[in-house]
Amino acid sequence: MTAHGPVAGPEAAGGAPPVLTVDALSKTYPLPGGGRLTAADAIGFTVPRGGSLGIVGESGSGKTTVARMLVGLVRPDAGTVTVDGRARPARPARGRAARLARAREIQMVFQDPYVSLDPRLTGRQCLLTALRLHGASGAAAEEKAERLLGQVGLGSREGAARPHALSGGQRQRLAIARALAVEPRVLVLDEAVAALDVSIQAQILQLLGEVRRETGVALVFVSHDLAVVRHITEATLVMRRGTVVEQGPTRSVLAAPVTPYTRALLAAVPRPGWDPAAALRAAAPDTP
C-alpha cells in the first residue's frame, strides 16, 4: 500500500481503478422527539481490487449503517456506491437477473451467521443452492461446492451437517463460503469475527487473508476491534456519530493518529502496563 493521502485507494499508486467507490453516502433517521439523527454523513472511500478497508468505531458511530448501505439493506438518503465503475441503483433491484447481478457485486457476512444461513440446508446444499441460482449446474456446481468447502477449511463431515450442528467458527466459515460462491467483487464483513473464540477468530482472519489473495475479492471490514483491523486492513476509516473523524492507511492511522478521538480509542485498548484510569485521563480533555 503506497497511498499516504487521506483517501484509501490506489490513485496514489496510479494503478487500476478501484473496485469499490463510495461517494458522499448519507443517512439520517427521524428522532422520536423531533429532529434527525445523522447515522452517516457524506462518507466516501475507495477500495482497490484485492484491497482491504477497515471501518472502525464504537456503538452509535454509524459503521454498521454504512455497511448496510453498501449491500443495500439500508437505502441511503444521498450518495453513491459504485462497483467496477457501475453505480448501484439506490432502489432494490427489480427482476431476477438484476438481483443476481447485484448479488455478485457485493456480499455480506454478519456477526451471527445464523441470520444468513437456512437452518434446513446442510452446508453443501446451502452452497449448491447459491451456485445454482447463479447459473452453475450439475457436476460443475457440485465440484465448485466441494472446492469452496475446502477453501474455507470445512471437511466433508461439516459439509453434510446443518448449521445447528456446526460450531460458531464452522458456521462463520460456511457463511464466508456462501458469500464467495457467487464470486462477489466485494465482501463486507460486519463484526464477522467478534463473537468467535480467540483461537477461532485467528483462523478466520487467516482464512480471509488467503481468500483475498486467491480470489482478489476486496474486503470492507467493519469492526470495533482496532487490533483486528490493524491485522487485516490496509486502509482505515474511523467513524464517530455518523462522521469520519480520520481516514488513511491503517498503519499511520493506528500508529500516528491525528485526531483526539482516535487517540482516545487507542489509549483504551488494554496492553502491558495499561492503566484504565490513565487511559481515561488521556481521553478526557478532548472527548466530551
Binding site: 473464540d197 480467540v198 483461537s199 485467528a202 482472519l205 491485522h231 498503519r251 500508529a255
Partner: peptide, 19 residues
C-alpha cells in the same frame, strides 16, 4: 493468535483445531 496494536508484533498465528 490475539491481534495486537503493536507494530513489531508478528502476524496472528491461529491455534489449529477448536476448543
Amino acid at each position: 493468535c490475539s491481534p495486537t496494536l503493536d507494530e513489531a508484533a508478528a502476524g496472528v498465528r491461529p491455534i489449529p483445531g477448536r476448543p
